[in-house]
Design a protein around this nucleic acid. Sequence first.
DNA 1: ATCTGTTTTTGACATCGATCAAATTGGCGC
DNA 2: GCGCCAATTTGATCGATGTCAAAAACAGAT
Lengths: 234, 234
Amino acid sequence: MEETADMMNSNLKLNNRDRAVLMKAPFLTSLTGNSLVRMMSTMSVISLTNRKSIFREGEDADAFYCVLSGYVRLYQLNRDGREADIRICSPGDTFAECLLYGGTKYRHHAQTAEATTLARFDMQAVRDLAEQERDIAKAVITSLSKHLMTTMDCVANDRLHTAPQRVANYILTRCPVDGGPASIRLPFQKNLLAGMLGLAPEALSRAFSTLRRTGVTVRGRVIQVGDVQALREI
Amino acid sequence: MEETADMMNSNLKLNNRDRAVLMKAPFLTSLTGNSLVRMMSTMSVISLTNRKSIFREGEDADAFYCVLSGYVRLYQLNRDGREADIRICSPGDTFAECLLYGGTKYRHHAQTAEATTLARFDMQAVRDLAEQERDIAKAVITSLSKHLMTTMDCVANDRLHTAPQRVANYILTRCPVDGGPASIRLPFQKNLLAGMLGLAPEALSRAFSTLRRTGVTVRGRVIQVGDVQALREI
DNA sequence: ATCTGTTTTTGACATCGATCAAATTGGCGC
DNA sequence: GCGCCAATTTGATCGATGTCAAAAACAGAT
């Protein structure tokens, strides 16, 4: 088998880290034995370098995906041809699974935002499995429920919070629960964080500088929080 | 049985129109025979007048609902105590069903936005049914899939379009497909439309007046469109 | 360590939409 | 038709965020 450095697209065995991520995905984590084996047999692994298209809006949807490592950007074009991110998928996130029973064509563009490994599930195969195996159906329900909740949270976040509040929320979700100082490291470019929060990169940058008054220091990807409790008040 | 005029909360038989709406809900429409009967047996009908609370954020989630007639507003409070609509549910819409497997507490406030009739489904009963009956599980999957798709559309709409564009989109979804003139009647107050589109009422009003230049006339709840095709270009 | 291309930040500005208050319209019961 | 309350529109203003351009910081390769 031959691969170019530019675009690997293979069916290799999973490495351990990717396997662990996959097994924690909500539509697999509850499966055991035969169901798990059958589900895994509909899957293939795909590795892509940065900025590769996974699918385009309007194409026939024949698979959904789970991010194993790297990041995926789901976006649409507005009337002026500008891209707006709808969702940034991190390791463990599933995308396009709403098309299992919801439609036949992809509704957004999907492209990698880093070197990325994906698990690809054949839509029709999973559909068939879900009808045969109760626990697979249940796992799909769990996955869709969770995804729907986070998407509703996204709407609420967009409509309810200003840019500094969204950034503060994001930081808080990765901070220890108690109130003292903390330090976290962004796992990706600020570009992507902006997309997650529905902000332009410049707006994210300004939100960070607003948060300096609340004791947040940013150096590269490292974010230091003077007082976690103070951040909650924002 | 005694009822006040202010707040009926009863278990009456469905009238024909409500029954038709219910049967078209995605988690019922594919069911037949025994599954349908069992599903219906977990249901009760609730009628409420305008502005009655259905549940509050943080309460234990023991039921999900389908709107049969009227409208329901899902909203949250921001830090200043101002309400922001997350979703407006119309007849046929289901809400809080993402908690079937996604969590145990309601995540928003829900209140009626008109005199409203609801079908109430006991969460635990439906959970049990979905595990027993394949077609019920499948119906739940379909329902969640559809709901997830519309919620992602909502995010996309919020992030991609300006107020006049959102209003134009809304109008177009209820217009005949061809390009000529058309006239539609809003089925609810503009208040609610604003909430659906993620706008303040004033912003909706101004969007309408912007659209006058594109041949849109608004008189009360009646919207007349001079040229449907022109509206698509906005 | 230096170079180079990319990412991020900053500045200046335009735009959009929220907010508050006031005027107007509309709906509905009488 | 009238009166009244609620919904909607309008005006004025403000704040937040997008946009474009340029500077600065950063990361990776040499």
